[in-house]
């Protein structure tokens, strides 16, 4: 065994790290392929029951962390006072 070989870095830790990073991405892509779509539709349906909004102004993001994952839903809703003004205008 040469001296060079002796000092060469162990390759298993590199393999492990590469796999962990890769799989973190692939799991979102593969396992949750439909999950985001389903969540989006169901969340929108619930909100649409109570307020009206533009479907284009909705952003849904999912981040998978090491121990917790986060689901961020960003919906732009017209201000309620403007809504009531509009309703008042329609009635008046």
């Amino acid at each position: 065994m040469s001296l060079l070989h002796f000092f060469r870095q162990r390759s298993a830790p590199i393999a492990r790290e590469r796999l962990q990073i890769l799989l973190a991405h692939e799991r979102i892509a593969c396992r949750h392929q439909d999950l985001l779509g389903i969540l989006r539709e169901e969340i929108l349906a619930v909100i649409a029951r109570h307020v009206s909004f533009e479907p284009d102004k909705v952003q849904i993001k999912m981040d998978r962390g090491k121990s917790v994952s986060t689901l961020a839903v960003d919906i732009e809703i017209p201000n309620l006072d403007r809504l009531s003004d509009a309703v008042a205008g329609m009635v008046g």
Binding site: R10, S11, A12, P13, A15, R16, L19, Q20, L23
Partner: peptide, 16 residues
């Protein structure tokens, strides 16, 4: 090989 750090260890595989 696993002891020499040349292949993934059992723990690595199970954890991943």
């Amino acid at each position: 090989r696993a002891a020499r750090g040349e292949t993934l260890s059992i723990d690595d595989v199970l954890e991943i």
